[in-house]
Design a protein around this nucleic acid. Structure first.
Length: 187
DNA sequence: CTATATTTTCCTGATT
DNA sequence: AAATCAGGAAAATATA
């Protein structure tokens, strides 16, 4: 799975000289956390390090690490701090963008704080990490050029079809009449 | 191959 | 200033 754009990977590689697997994703939407941890092949090499102290301490480096960590649902405090459970696994195989967003919203372990309910009853949600969302969507579509700008254009088209309704707050969307499968009781 | 739906890409301009 | 929002236009992709 591709988890970084080319430019980001170049930036990271130029800065780390580390031995972690370049193509490893820690929050692969197609793979659960249990899979990740039970499979040594996907167990990241730098996980065994005590943090990121082997990186140099420039602002650029920090930004690169943050970007990488965000896109992979990691915190600099360590992967183990993530409270990721293996239950209610969803594969996030949804073919359409709105279904992908919906399923991400419905699966906390893959979500990792990228999306957040604003009003569960009304189906209002907020995009917390726009870049990470775009990367995940790009990963799903095997398109490393995906950006939030382009993703949001696609979301805006949903206003016409009633899949989404407009909410006049930045990064906030609402499921419309033609969106299904997001309601709590209807699960 | 045709047609349609769903993005993706790009763009200009407005808003926060 | 940098992100985000609004849509138009057109290319790309997938599927029936």
């Amino acid at each position: 799975p591709l988890s970084l754009s080319h430019s980001n990977r170049v930036m990271l590689d130029s800065v780390t000289h580390s031995t972690f697997l370049p193509n490893t994703s820690f929050c692969d939407p197609l793979m659960s956390w249990t899979d990740l941890f039970s499979n040594e092949e996907y167990y990241p090499a730098f996980e065994h390090q005590t943090g990121y102290s082997f990186f140099t301490d420039t602002e650029e480096t920090k930004a690169a690490i943050k970007d990488y960590a965000d896109s992979n649902c990691l915190k600099t405090s360590g992967i183990k701090s993530q409270d990721c459970h293996s239950h209610s696994r969803t594969s996030l195989q949804s073919s359409h963008l709105w279904e992908f967003v919906r399923d991400l919203l419905l699966s906390p372990e893959e979500n990792c704080g990228i999306l957040e309910w604003e009003d569960r009853e009304q189906g209002i949600f907020r995009v917390v990490k726009s870049e990470a969302l775009a990367k995940m969507w790009g990963q799903r579509k095997k398109n490393d050029r995906m950006t939030y700008e382009k993703l949001s254009r696609a979301l805006r088209y949903y206003y016409k079809t009633g899949i989404l309704e407009r909410v006049d707050r930045r990064l906030v969307y609402k499921f419309g009449k033609n969106a299904h499968g997001w309601q709590e009781d209807k699960l």
